[in-house]
Structure formats: C-alpha cells, structure tokens
Amino acid sequence: MRGLVLGGVMAARGFAALLITLVGLLLVTFVVGRVMPIDPVVAAVGDKASAETYAKAREALGLDQPVWIQFGRYIGGVARGDLGQSSLSNRPVSEDIARVFPATVELSTLGILVGIILGVPLGVFAAHRRNRWPDQIIRSVSLLGYSTPVFWLGLIGLLIFYAQLGWSGGPGRIDTAYRYSVEEWSGLMLVDTLYSGDWDAFRSALSHIALPALLLGYFSLAYIARMTRGFMIEELSKEYVTTARLKGASEADVLWRHALPNVLVPVITVIALAYAQLLEGTVLTETVFAWPGLGLYITNSLFSADMPAVLGGTLVVGVCFVLLNKISEILYPILDPRTRSR
C-alpha cells in the first residue's frame, strides 16, 4: 500500500515536472515570437491590405491584447486541447500537425533504425580494432557523416540515385500517380499503402522514403557509432574484461555479452537524443526531398511569425523529448540491473 502511495506521489511529481517544462518551453517560444521584428498581421493579410482590414485581422489574431493575456489565453486553449488557428495555413494548428507530424515520424523512425542497426555494431567493432585500419575507416566515415552538410549530401544522393541511376523515387512521399488514391488511415504512407493492399503504391512510397531515410540514418549512424566506440573503449579497458579474456572467453563473447550490455545505458541515451533530434524535423532534408514534415512547418511558420503554429510545433517537439527521456529511464533498469532502485 505504502509502495502504491509512493508510486502515486512519484507519478504526480513527474507529471508536474512535465507540465512545468512544457509551459516554460511555450513561454520562452512565445516571448521569442513576440520580440521578433516580424509583424504577424502582415504575414496573415498581405502587404497591401487596407488599414481597416489590418486592424480587423489584428483583433482577430488577439494581438490587440497585452502579451500576458495573449499567453494566458493560449495556455487556456491548450489545456482544452485547442492549439489555435494557424494564420498561414488558415487551419487549426492541431490539424496541420496531424498532417505533418506523421511524415516526420515515418522518416525519423526509419532513419533511426538504420542508425541503430548499423551504428551500434560499427561502434563496437571500431572500439575492438582501436587505432587500426577498420577503426580509422569507421571514424572517417562517421566524421564525414557528422561534418558534411546534409543539404549537399541530399542533393548529391538525389542526383546519383534518382536522376542518374533511377534506383530511388524522387522528392515527395509517393509518385503522383498514387497521390491521394490511397486512403489516409494513419498518415504514415508506408502503413497506409500496406493497409490498403496497394502494393504498387507501397513500392512507390518505399522508393521515395529510402533515400532520405538512409541519409538521416547515415547521420544518426555517425553519431551513434562514434559515441558507442567511446563508451566501448572505456569499458574494454576494465579489469573484468581482461579477466574474461584470461578465462578464455571468445572475443565475440567479450564484446557482445560482457562489455556491450554494460554500456547500453549511455548508448540508449545517445539513441534517444538522436531520435528526438530527427523528430524535431530536419529542415534541410525536408527541403531537399520536398518532404512535408514538422521541421519545415515550424520554420516556415516562424519566418511568418505564425505563432500558434510555432507554439504547437514546439509543444509536440517538447513532448517528444520528454517522452523519449521517460522511455530511456524505463529502459535503464531493464538493460542494466545495477540501475534498479532498491
């Protein structure tokens, strides 16, 4: 019973911390939006609107009120599940986000999967062959992934694999022939095309997502492999590893069964951070691949001072960060018994 009460208190504390984090995030974003030298009314009604139209739009956007009232009203709306109306798309922000976020989730998830599946083993392998040629190659590839502008790499990828070789689909999420012929169910193009049973459409969607997902996967891989290598090098220098080797454990066992499980906690943190960054939306990748995702949505909204849209997007990003952190925290004790609380 006492444990249950304690659990409840902990959960309430966690929830309160989450609320404070999100309100703080919104407050900072709101203030930044208000001090930006951009007039949101102009963005909404155009440059040549009459003074009367301008005043009407200003009032409709609630900008004639003091900033703290505007913020209070916004928070009140959020509490009721209303994220407001985007002045740029002229639609409810929640509807906009429901449209762009699945595109980002789909791309990010595939990207991070590629990053994890390739990045972790490469990091382990590089640590094992420290300062030898496989390590040098993996480090160079990681460095390249970390330092090459995504914009450039995306265009080169499109040029080679789409325009020259025709191996991948082009920009956008699916070929024009299938666009809007597949019923939207989840907003995830791969899932929706599969669900509808249209294999040609699925093939088209897969061909479109392959290149940007691999590109994002490469960037995640670069980060994950580099960090995993670092953690593993430290772990491999520990005495228990030497003991295991002396006891005749195979190198594979030493690496994968002894050392790797001990670095999984920091590796999970790194993966969570990399995934959160991808979920934030990768503006340049989305621009090059004409991918209608969250990053592009927030950026375009910010340039037009469309604050309900920016705040809505920020809220989603904030929730993603918090949730991923929570998931990591839940995973720690499962992966490493030493972190279990007594």
Partner: peptide, 18 residues
C-alpha cells in the same frame, strides 16, 4: 548489421519509373 545493410540496399533499389 549485414541484414540491415541488405535492407538499406533493397530500399534504395526499389526502382520506380520516373
């Protein structure tokens, strides 16, 4: 890792007539 590489290659090789 090899399977992932194969998946990655498959993904990129789903050629569609442009």
């Amino acid at each position: 890792m090899l399977a992932a590489s194969a998946l990655a290659l498959t993904m990129s090789a789903v050629s569609v007539e442009a």
